[in-house]
Amino acid sequence: MTPITTPEIAVRASGVEKIYVSGDTNVVALRGADLEVRCGEILMLVGPSGCGKTSFISIIAGLLKRDAGQLEVMGQDPQALSTEARTAWRLRTVGFVFQQFNLIPTLTLAENAAIPLILQGMDRRSACEKAREILNYVGLGGREQSSPVRLSGGQQQRVAIARALVNSPKILVCDEPTSALDGATGLHVMELIAQVGRMPGRAVIVVSHDDRIYHLADRIVRMDDGRVDRIETPAARRNTHV
């Protein structure tokens, strides 16, 4: 008998190493990190400050080059692509949510959220139309024409989530999406990520320090000193801590 479901693998990383060279000092950020992320799951990457979380997801997202190890993201090693091809690959494949929301203050919410579509070549009108739908979906319906500067942090992060999802990327990468927000707002934003990000075939990777949102993850990957230390499920985690 074959298993009924074999979850497809979105990210397969093994032995990933990253060394930052600045001047005469080398900082080893990753020393052989291994990770598998399944399609359809929400994976949280946690660990002490400086353990290499941001470096790791940057490599996975095709923003940063690794120095050793294997990586396949949706069947593609981003590092094997030319700079231009990698940029285009990121556009198609990866959605980003940043700690600092990085919304352009002089554009409307709809325009901000439409950026990935426009970068993909969609005309502005259709892109903004589509952005409106997704803004509605993240709870900002009716405010499409407002400016981001009038929004609270939580609302701004909702717009950023809409922007990350507007072109239906296969992978959503969020680096500390809630750490610029207060606890309750952060929880709401994370709930939104868990709700709208989770789709069959899409993998969501969230880097976070915020243990109040851990229960929203399918799996929690604990990193330490440039390696993946443990993989837990929220239930197991809760058991170990409580």
Partner: peptide, 13 residues
Amino acid sequence: KYFGAMKAMGASR
């Protein structure tokens, strides 16, 4: 920072 974000999101040079 916005250019950087766009670059990350996949805006070509």
